[in-house]
């Protein structure tokens, strides 16, 4: 196993996430795709830590920070989507792309 395999895995996972975020219609699908992108970044950080700086754990610490930020993001995102669904009864992106009520 070389570093290249891990970077390639992270790239493909990230691209799948980008594709989902570009093409899904429902807001929850887009949030799931964003989670996939966060995970791809985490794989890259852990792999670079292991192969380029194996004596330290800085990459893993960064990955932990990203996990925390992702958790906060998904909680706030789902709360917003739930609020919009309660008020407007809509979850598809083309119905809620205007920022005014």
């Amino acid at each position: 196993m070389t570093l290249s395999h891990y970077v390639a895995l992270g790239s493909i996972l990230f691209i799948i996430g980008v594709f989902g975020a570009l093409t899904r219609r429902s807001v929850i699908g887009i949030l799931m795709s964003v989670e996939l992108m966060f995970n791809a970044a985490n794989i890259n950080l852990a792999a670079f830590n292991r192969y380029l700086h194996p004596t330290g754990v800085t990459g893993q610490a960064f990955a932990l920070f990203i996990m925390t930020v992702a958790a906060a993001e998904v909680v706030v995102g789902l709360a917003l989507v739930l609020a919009i669904y309660r008020r407007r009864d809509k979850i598809y992106m083309e119905d809620i792309n205007l920022m005014r009520g």
């Binding site: 570093l3 799948i16 594709f19």
Partner: peptide, 30 residues
Amino acid sequence: NQEWLAGLLVCAITAAGLLRQAKGFLGKAA
């Protein structure tokens, strides 16, 4: 949505670029 073909094209081009970058680390084993 309707633009999935354009999204697929964008993703394919980006993936080609990213994988090209990843090839640069091929000799890096632990």
